[in-house]
C-alpha cells in the first residue's frame, strides 16, 4: 500500500526545491485563470453595474439567467466550447482547440456570470440615497455611476475573488478544451487528475497543497474584505 506520509514528504520536497515542472504548471494555471478573470471582470462589471442601476424590460429574466449560469457545470461549458472550436465547429478555422486560449475562453464563460451577478447584487445593495446625494452635489451621470460603484467596492472585489476561486479549482472544462498537454496546456487541476490516475501521488499532492493554500488565501481575503466593508457600515 502506498504510504500517504511518504507521498506528503515527497510533495513538500518538490515544493521546497521549487521544482521547475511544478512551477511551470502553477505559472500556467495562474496565467490562464488570471487572464480569464480579467476578461470576465472587464465584461461582467459594466454589465452588473448597468443592471444594478438601470430599469429595462426583461431585466428580471436576465438576472435569473445570470444567477443560473453561476452554477454552470464546467464539463458542459467545456463541451460547448469544444463544439465551437473543434475543426467542424463555427470557429474551427481559428485553430484554438487544445491551446491555452481555448482554456481562457472556457474559464471566462465560467467566471463571467459570477462577476456580473454578484456585482449586480453589490450595486443593488448600495443605499439609493448615495445616488441622490451625488446628484445634488452636481455629479454627472458617469460620476454618479462611479460613486455608486465605489460604494459597492467591497462586494465587487468579493465577486471577483469568488470568480477567481471558481476558475482556479475548475477541471472539467479545461480538460476538454485544453487536452492536458504536458508543458503546454497542463495546469494544476488537470495534473492532479492525471497523476492520481497514474498512481504518482507526489506531484498531485504538491499541487493539491498549493491549490488548497490558494483557496485558503482567497477565502481569507474575501472574509477580510467583507469584514472591512461591514465595519465601515456598522460603525
Amino acid at each position: 500500500m502506498y504510504s500517504i506520509t511518504e507521498a506528503f514528504k515527497k510533495a513538500f520536497v518538490l515544493i521546497l526545491n521549487l521544482d521547475p515542472e511544478l512551477l511551470g504548471i502553477i505559472f500556467l494555471s495562474l496565467k490562464v485563470s488570471g487572464l480569464a478573470l480579467l476578461i470576465a471582470t472587464l465584461l461582467g462589471l459594466p454589465i452588473g453595474a448597468f443592471m444594478g442601476m438601470k430599469r429595462f424590460p426583461l431585466k428580471g429574466i436576465i438576472v435569473n439567467i445570470l444567477n443560473t449560469f453561476m452554477g454552470l457545470p464546467p464539463v458542459v461549458v467545456g463541451l460547448f466550447v469544444y463544439l465551437l472550436l473543434s475543426r467542424s465547429g463555427p470557429f474551427g478555422f481559428m485553430g484554438l482547440l487544445y491551446t491555452p486560449s481555448a482554456m481562457v475562453i472556457a474559464q471566462t464563460i465560467l467566471a463571467f456570470p459570477i462577476v456580473a451577478s454578484l456585482s449586480n447584487s453589490a450595486i443593488i445593495g448600495v443605499d439609493p440615497v448615495i445616488r441622490q446625494a451625488s446628484m445634488t452635489l452636481g455629479a454627472t451621470r458617469s460620476q454618479v455611476t462611479i460613486a455608486v460603484i465605489k460604494e459597492a467596492r467591497y462586494g465587487i472585489i468579493s465577486a471577483v475573488i469568488a470568480a477567481f476561486g471558481r476558475v482556479m479549482a475548475e477541471v472539467g472544462a479545461i480538460l476538454i478544451v485544453g487536452g492536458n498537454i504536458a508543458g503546454y496546456t497542463r495546469v494544476m487541476t488537470t495534473t492532479i487528475a492525471l497523476e492520481t490516475d497514474k498512481g504518482d501521488f507526489e506531484l498531485a499532492l504538491a499541487l493539491g497543497i498549493i491549490l488548497l493554500s490558494i483557496s485558503l488565501i482567497i477565502n481569507s481575503t474575501i472574509h477580510l474584505i467583507q469584514k472591512k466593508g461591514e465595519a465601515g457600515i456598522n460603525r
Binding site: 440615497v129 441622490q132 466593508g229
Partner: peptide, 10 residues
C-alpha cells in the same frame, strides 16, 4: 440640496 438622510460615502 442636503437630504434629511445625508447619504455619506463609505
Amino acid at each position: 440640496l442636503v437630504l434629511p438622510r445625508v447619504g455619506v460615502f463609505n
